[in-house]
Design a protein around this nucleic acid. Structure first.
Lengths: 394, 394
DNA sequence: ATTTCTGGTGTAAACGTTTACATCACGTTT
DNA sequence: AAACGTGATGTAAACGTTTACACCAGAAAT
């Protein structure tokens, strides 16, 4: 390994001078600089990152912890694009700052018990951590957050130590349900819900109920819980047909696109036409949503932006550790395709305005729920972009 | 920051003892061990990765350099899944070994001029590098390879310093063309080729010609070059219709799935039916290939395996730097769906056998081509799995 | 009672940078 | 001529680990 000493010896200077040249600092005579450059080139010297980190007390690396999926079905795998997009958002930010990104995939464990040794090891190699929601128990996130800045992506505004950047599921869900009611005259709704305590499912569910509450002329004729998979959506669709086949609902609201696609399959098998017989909407705007027949009306998640914002926030926290953790809700978009009854071939996107509402509203919508308890900490998506100052670089 | 010294002080022992406890080495009395554990827990101590790396002369990190894509069209983005899959393969290997993965995205620059400072910085932070093909000029890869182990994914067996792990494009392409000829009686073919000098396009093109050469009853009635995008495929399809609309070919062979989808669109617009009027095949088996009407017959790339193998090889090279660089060609799979004329709804997969052939064959197929020149270095995919020994862990 | 072993523990020197501070040569000012 | 900048360079002490080696107490062998 070629070290600073080797370069210094060859150029006939001290290591301090070599270091100065490497970092383009001035106060080195032109001739000396040239000699050092020459030596560096000749030896192919590259500074050792570990030694730099140790000396600078800064690693210039952030960690990203993603959830590992096991499912091998192609459609389920479309969900891969989620972290993939987040990743690109993160990387975009990071590159601009000359930092690096350390990636770790973690088993999604139902108990929320993470692989503690691996997380610990990660935390020793980075200056801050970005972590996806839903597979690391929050008390462990707290433990991490006590040691270094942590930003939870798509998380619940839960603990005290970590920042949260999430999509505004509530407003998005409210918007799509409102669209069905206001634009397509839906009155009788069926809900294909997600798992009872999945954070995303909770927010979307609450919004549905919130909108129904404000529209007394409407009625929820039934609901089924799925697990966000196509198959579970298909089952939900069959269940719906068995129970309400005689009098179909006006619209079926699904907690995500995969389940909506499952419902679509069940309907197709039973000869039920979408949207002629019943309207159908999903959530997330996964890539293939636009490819089905009919193309799926859904709510677009700002995945890439999620990554960007989370990363920007993390870098800010690292630069100034005294910053208090915040919650940042990013706006979603309503993507109107044909499955809701909008004209075919005219996909349009509408920005979703963030709903402001009181703790009382939320408590009424879902008394005792986690989100109601946290309504106080809920902050509107900030249009204001906080100037993410470039950390002073050596 | 909590250091080893803090723990040692609190536990009333030396740093050496703490280190021993941290790494579970024996030769520490049970009582002492307990005291140290207690102190670690109390202080929330986590070893500093930078200091460990420096001391051990090993970072336990490998770098992955991916090509950054700019295109925002959803379908083009399906290609994202490519690196995404590779990434998961890599991560799977790495996790097992307790290493970490440092990711970097690089602009795809036509000139192949990489962001040298960023690559250099990366090389100082890792023990080895995995790099995607096609956006870093090979002489620069050589420069990296002189410093540390480098494995090129999907690369050309080019330089002397770096290992190569790639899909066996040649055999895959030969297999799909042979399928069209042998199973569906195709005689008159049209080729929608990729960019003239893209490595993948070259291999696939050579295989097409190789097969035609062995089937004199067949004829290439024309070809068009695209740039691997849907749009360019659409143009190629229109061109085909303009020139050969009166006497359609039996089959259209596309250099990738995106272009095949473009051709499909052009055909649909002109009322040409696939596969009734003409057979159509792609390459890569991108995720949405199965969703089109008709579902696309194509060649599956072992993307995840590519990542796994590349990573395994890199770890081996790191463990034993005296190893000579190798070329590893992974087998592809033929995915028969309906677009080639196979019965609808019965997607089948067939392993593609690696073709063995001589330099003379290749030279004949494409005299003077890069691949012909390198035929000598072409090695068959090894069924033998080299025992990727777990590096001795402290 | 000495010697020899052995297991437990401590000491201190790396590892390759960065950087505050010291030094020095050489002009400028008085 | 002495004192004083000033700009270029060197010195050496961190940074937080790991680990070869030294040391020491007590048990076992003589």
């Amino acid at each position: 390994m070629v070290t600073l000493y080797d370069v210094a010896r060859l150029a006939g200077v001290s290591t301090a001078t070599v270091s100065r040249v490497v970092h383009g600092q001035d106060g080195v005579r032109e001739g000396t600089r040239a000699r050092v450059r020459q030596a560096i080139e000749e030896l192919g010297y590259v500074p050792d990152g570990a030694a730099q980190s140790l000396s600078r007390r800064r690693k210039d690396v952030i960690g990203l912890v993603c959830k590992e999926r096991e499912i091998d079905d192609a459609l389920e795998n479309a969900g891969l694009l989620y972290y993939d997009q987040v990743l690109r958002g993160v990387e975009e930010r990071i590159r601009y700052h000359d930092w690096s990104l350390l990636i770790t995939f973690m088993q999604s464990d139902a108990t929320g018990q993470p692989d503690v040794p691996r997380l610990d090891a990660l935390s020793g190699k980075v200056d801050g951590i970005l972590i996806g929601e839903g597979f690391v128990a929050s008390h462990y996130i707290e433990r991490l957050a006590a040691r270094l800045p942590v930003v939870v992506i798509a998380g619940i505004p839960g603990g005290q130590g970590a920042d949260v950047v999430a999509a505004d599921n509530f407003s998005g869900s409210a918007a799509i349900v409102t669209h069905l009611i206001a634009e397509h005259g839906a009155r009788r709704l069926f809900h294909v819900d997600g798992p009872p305590d999945a954070p995303d499912a909770i927010e979307r569910r609450l919004a549905l109920h919130y909108v129904l509450r404000s529209n007394p002329q409407c009625e929820l004729i039934g609901s089924a819980h799925g697990i966000f998979s196509v198959h579970s959506g298909e089952q939900a669709g069959e269940e719906l047909l068995a129970r309400h086949g005689g009098a179909l609902p006006d619209a079926v609201v699904c907690a995500n696109d995969q389940m909506a696609i499952g419902v679509l399959r069940a309907f197709a098998a039973a000869g039920v036409r979408v949207p002629a017989d019943v309207a159908l909407v999903g959530f997330d705007d996964i890539y293939p949503a636009s490819l089905f027949d009919p193309p799926l009306t859904t709510v677009h998640q700002p995945t890439r932006m999620l990554g960007e914002r989370a990363c920007a926030r993390l870098l800010d926290r690292i630069a100034d550790p005294t910053l208090r953790p915040t919650v940042d809700l990013l706006p979603t978009e309503l993507v109107l395709r044909a499955s809701c009854g909008c004209p075919h071939g005219t996909a349009t996107r509408q920005a979703v305005k963030t709903l402001e509402f009181s703790s009382a509203d939320l408590a009424a919508a879902a008394p005792g729920s986690r989100i109601a308890r946290q309504a106080g900490s809920r902050v509107p998506a900030r249009a204001s972009r906080q100037p993410s100052r470039k950390p002073a670089k050596a």
